[in-house]
């Protein structure tokens, strides 16, 4: 290993916190959840409206619940149920994915949402 190598590694590591800070900085409560089925357009649902959704994936139907401003996988045809274990999401940018079934949940809030409030 040479000095140049060391410089490269040091800079790379030094730049890391920047990413964490930028991307995981202050969180805001989410307003909507995007349900993303692999290869399809995300479907956006308000976190303000309680509902249970059956989302068709590669293996079968994943069940997504939206309740009291949070969203979660509550049922899944996948074998290890990692998606269900990741629990309820409510902050902007929080995600949970059922990779075997090809479905991802992602909470959207400030800075990403185009609206301050949704009327319905």
């Amino acid at each position: 290993m040479t000095r140049a190598d060391l410089i490269i590694i040091v800079i790379a590591i030094a730049a890391l916190p920047l990413f964490y800070w930028q991307l995981w900085g202050p969180n805001y409560p989410g307003t909507d959840v995007d349900i993303i089925v692999a290869g399809e357009k995300p479907q956006r649902h308000s976190l303000l409206r309680n509902q249970t959704l059956h989302i068709h994936g590669r293996l079968g139907d994943s069940i997504v619940a939206i309740k009291n401003g949070k969203a979660a996988f509550i049922g899944s045809p996948c074998p290890n149920k990692q998606c269900i274990r990741s629990g309820w999401l409510d902050d902007n940018g929080e995600t949970s994915a059922c990779l075997p079934n090809g479905i991802m949940l992602s909470v959207i809030g400030d800075g990403i949402a185009r609206f301050d409030s949704i009327n319905f």
């Binding site: 956006r44 301050d116 409030s117 009327n119």
Partner: peptide, 14 residues
């Protein structure tokens, strides 16, 4: 100004 989205009465989204 505050931005308000009006939800679609028949479909998902605004």
């Amino acid at each position: 100004p505050w931005r308000i989205g009006i939800r679609h009465p028949r479909d998902f989204g605004v």
